[in-house]
């Protein structure tokens, strides 16, 4: 069946998939799932830092995608993937924000001086695998991780991040820089450790 073999970037089939999903066609839904699920799982993992929880959030994310796909507007190549990522990310940070007790500790405003984030060996860092990079993000403290994801991947401004997370803009900036510092430190240590082997 044509729909099963739909590939990302194939405009006609992507549009067809959307139409069929709106009509409640389960084959089309499954096709959409097969094309994007692995990518969206990585998004969930980036946000929550736990693979089991990421699978659960992906489940909720797809339910949200299929129930709100009627609101999606086709805006050219890649728009469907962007929209799906946005929906799934929304599900993730909504969930994380709902864990209030945890987040109140993590999202406290931090006015300490921002440390410098520097990659000592950029060429070695470029050779790191996607999974290794994902693990580094997953290991970030939850508040930093959310700000980092929203800023780097969702392209949100600090103002928007502040509104989403209920913090002030300065705190968002500070947490982003701290996240980057932690990441650079982890990458540098990892590269050194690998070099010693």
């Amino acid at each position: 069946m044509k729909l099963i073999h739909a590939k990302q970037g194939d405009l006609t089939d992507e549009e067809t998939l959307v139409k069929q999903c709106r009509a409640g066609n389960n084959m089309a839904r499954k096709s959409l799932y097969l094309v994007y699920s692995k990518r969206l799982l990585a998004v969930c993992y980036r946000y929550c830092g736990n693979l089991d929880l990421a699978q659960d959030l992906l489940h909720d994310g797809f339910i949200k995608v299929f129930t709100t796909i009627g609101k999606f507007e086709w805006r050219g190549k890649g728009s469907l993937e962007l929209w799906m990522k946005s929906v799934v990310a929304h599900v993730c940070y909504d969930y994380l924000l709902a864990q209030k007790a945890k987040n109140e500790v993590e999202l406290k405003e931090d006015n300490d001086a921002v440390d410098e984030a520097t990659l000592e060996d950029e060429s070695m860092a470029a050779q790191l695998t996607e999974r290794q990079l994902l693990d580094f993000v997953a290991e970030l403290p939850e508040g930093y991780r959310m700000v980092f994801n929203l800023y780097v991947f969702e392209k949100k401004t600090h103002k928007e991040i502040a509104e989403i997370l209920g913090i002030n803009e300065h705190s968002s900036t500070s947490q982003l820089h701290r996240a980057k510092y932690i990441l650079s430190k982890k990458i540098n240590e990892f590269i050194k450790h690998e070099a010693k082997k």
Binding site: K38, E122, R131, L133
Partner: peptide
């Protein structure tokens, strides 16, 4: 440097 490095994750995939 960090943003550029991690932008690779935009198309990262994980096994389901």
């Amino acid at each position: 440097q960090i943003s550029n490095l991690f932008s690779r994750l935009d198309h990262a995939e994980m096994p389901l």
